[in-house]
Amino acid sequence: MVKPTRVENSIRALRFKAGEMTQAELADRVHVTRQTIIAIEQGRYSPSLEMAFQIARVFGVPLDEVFHYPGEES
C-alpha cells in the first residue's frame, strides 16, 4: 500500500532509546491518543508542526532527528 505521507520518522527507535517508552506514555505527554502515535509511526498521518515539535521535545532532540523528508531520487 502506498503511504499517504512521504514524511518518515524515527519515533520507534527514539522510544526504545528513551527507556522503552510506550506509545501510550508518549501519547500522554503529547496530549494525543495512542492511535495517533501509532498512525504517525506507521507513516499514516503527518502531524502538525506544533505536534512534531512537542514529540521532539519529549525526546530532547532536534526536530530533524525525529522527522525526515527524503529528497527525490534521480
Binding site: 510506550t22 506509545q23 501510550a24 500522554d28 494525543v32 491518543t33 492511535q35 495517533t36 505536534m51
Partner: peptide, 18 residues
C-alpha cells in the same frame, strides 16, 4: 495486556488527528 489498559485512557479523548 498493557494495550487494553491504555485503551481505557483513550475513551472520550479527541485530538488534532480526530
Amino acid at each position: 495486556e498493557r494495550s487494553a489498559e491504555d485503551a481505557v485512557g483513550d475513551v472520550g479523548r479527541t485530538d488534532q488527528r480526530d
